[in-house]
Amino acid sequence: MKSAVIVFPGSNCDRDMAVALTKITGNKPLMVWHQETDFDTVDFIALPGGFSYGDYLRCGAMSAKSNIMKEVIRRAEDGVPIFGVCNGFQVLTETGLLPGALMRNANLSFVCKDVKMTVANNDTMFTADYAEDEEILIPVAHHDGNYFADENTLDTLEGEGQVAFRYNEDINGAQRAIAGITNKRGNILGMMPHPERMIEPALGGSDGRKLFTSVMNRLS
């Protein structure tokens, strides 16, 4: 599987993502700078975590307008799998590729710890290797991870099976404990927790690995 990691000024999880993709796929990803306008054909695009543009204006708002995102949006519309983690999830909502918004954590504090989550839908290209309702342990590290959407949007997400992951405890005030969602087509996933940081026992667990193998198996 050929992949690319989009790098913005202020990204700080791009290397974590690159290491995970290299170890799991056997291929080093392209590291694509935000000022680029194009890049080689790939099977998978990741938007990493961090604090792009220092989180000025709104988290992800400035990155959503960067040169490279025009190409990412085009490829998303062509069906290429897009995965946004933490700040990457915020960018996806700011571009409109995913609905809703990520607001300041309800307790107004940065949260950084391993959290238990449930796989809410294992019938997606990102979650197929997980069991239905499987409980997994994945790290979070964010200040603006409180997922918000209007009630109609939330009902649609629930009804269409677009809620991919839920927190098992109140981490940030997210509505309906939503930790990650997909688009209707199913080729875009955004989530606040960091599965790339849990891919092998040496990191404290490997529950994040199945997300990447799910995509690999779907594309093979």
Rank of each mutant, 00 (worst) to 15 (best):
P48L: 08
K65D: 13
N217W: 01
P99I: 07
S3F: 06
F44D: 01
I24Y: 12
E134K: 08
M117H: 02
F89V: 05
A174C: 14
M1L: 11
M62L: 09
P99V: 14
H34I: 07
V215P: 08
R58V: 01
G186Q: 13
P195I: 12
Y56T: 11
D14G: 08
D133F: 09
V72G: 10
F89Y: 15
E77D: 14
L47F: 00
L219P: 07
K116E: 13
F110V: 04
R75N: 14
G54E: 04
V140L: 03
A46P: 00
A76S: 05
Q35G: 14
Q175E: 14
T127F: 06
M191D: 06
R185N: 13
V85L: 07
P193W: 07
A46E: 05
G96P: 09
I6L: 08
P9G: 08
C86H: 06
A128V: 00
T153L: 02
T37L: 10
D43H: 12
E94L: 09
R197S: 09
G190E: 09
R166W: 00
A179F: 14
E151V: 12
N183P: 07
L30A: 11
V5M: 12
G79E: 11
E94T: 12
V85E: 10
I199R: 07
K70F: 05
A202L: 12
G60M: 06
R166I: 00
H194T: 04
A106D: 13
I138Y: 04
M192Y: 02
M198K: 15
F126R: 04
F8H: 08
V72E: 10
D55Q: 02
V215G: 04
L154R: 01
L137T: 15
A61Q: 05
G208T: 10
V91L: 06
L137I: 11
V119D: 13
L57H: 05
I73D: 11
G10H: 09
T156M: 14
V7D: 01
H34S: 15
M1G: 04
T25K: 08
I82H: 01
M191Y: 06
D55K: 01
A128Y: 01
K2W: 03
M117C: 07
G100V: 04
E160F: 11
L47D: 00
Q162E: 15
K113I: 06
L102E: 04
M198W: 08
V111K: 12
M216Y: 02
E71M: 09
A131T: 13
T182D: 05
K65H: 10
F89G: 06
Q90W: 02
R176H: 15
A202G: 11
M125W: 05
K210S: 03
E135D: 11
A76P: 01
N107Q: 15
Q35T: 14
V163A: 03
R185E: 15
R197A: 10
E134S: 11
A120D: 06
G145K: 06
D129Y: 01
Y147Q: 04
R218P: 01
W33P: 03
K65A: 14
I6F: 10
V91Q: 05
H142R: 11
N168G: 10
P195D: 12
C112P: 09
G54A: 05
G204L: 03
L211Q: 11
V91C: 04
R218F: 14
